[in-house]
């Protein structure tokens, strides 16, 4: 019997490609955001409002991750910005190796901001580094305030949480105070923004945060 010590990280291959992606984004001075949430929390609606508000201010590109359909990409295409669809064909998350070839479909030098909308899933996407600068999680009040404690990793890995469907709060049992408290325990550095994508409310601080990140990334010496 032979015992072989490996200490081999399982995600090593992914993390190597993520590093290559990150290096490319650094060269281009491009800020890249990984947008994650469970299905139906409003990622695409938030993205639509974000695109509207950034029109004429920042040049935006979008990567749409979806298991099988192109529905989200079709919604984004209407805004006349570059969008690339990645179909994961059954896989529940995007990984760095799926994102890398999609980058060739953009003229990265002409972009200020690239948003990657991950597959709707609160568990798996958080495990895979794509090479992004920051991750943002969306959590809708209708999902209940126990979600951060049940799925801590995605909130620990994110820099921002957009609490969506805030207009529905009176109709749910969600304790927004407790929700925010739990989020801050998991990740004290989190920026929290309350929004309603449906009513187009609460977006100003989020847009200001995005613009600030893009500016900071451009300034960074390459």
């Amino acid at each position: 019997m032979v015992k072989v010590r490996m200490a081999a990280p399982v995600l090593q291959q992914n993390d190597e490609v993520a590093r290559e992606n990150r290096e490319l984004f650094r060269e281009k001075g491009l800020f890249v955001l990984n947008l994650m949430s469970s299905p139906g929390s409003g990622k695409t609606s938030i993205l639509e409002r974000t695109i509207e508000k950034l029109a004429g201010r920042l040049k935006l590109g979008v990567i749409e991750g979806d298991i099988y359909t192109t529905r989200d990409a079709e919604r984004i295409e209407k805004f006349g910005i570059p969008v690339v669809q990645i179909n994961t064909a059954g896989s529940c998350h995007l990984d760095a190796r799926m994102v890398q070839p999609a980058l060739d479909d953009f003229v990265l030098d002409e972009l200020d901001l690239l948003i990657v909308e991950n597959v709707g899933n609160l568990v798996c996407p958080a495990e895979f580094d794509l090479g992004e600068d920051a991750a943002a999680a969306v959590l809708s009040v209708a999902e209940g305030n126990d979600k951060p404690v049940k799925y801590p990793l995605v909130f620990r890995e994110s820099s921002v949480v957009l609490i969506n469907k805030i207009d529905l709060l009176p109709y749910t049992d969600c304790d927004i105070g407790l929700l925010q408290e739990d989020l801050k325990k998991i990740n004290p550095q989190l920026e929290l923004f309350q929004v309603s994508a449906r009513l187009d409310e609460g977006f100003d601080p989020w847009i200001a945060w995005l613009e600030q990140q893009v500016k900071a990334k451009k300034k960074r010496p390459s």
Binding site: V2, K3, R5, M6, A8, R156, K184
Partner: peptide, 20 residues
């Protein structure tokens, strides 16, 4: 302090295997 690093808990690696 909220300034806390994850010291352990994020592991996912093969420690060793046995075979012949």
């Amino acid at each position: 302090s909220p300034n806390v690093r994850v010291a352990s808990g994020r592991e996912l690696y093969i420690d060793y295997y046995e075979g012949e």
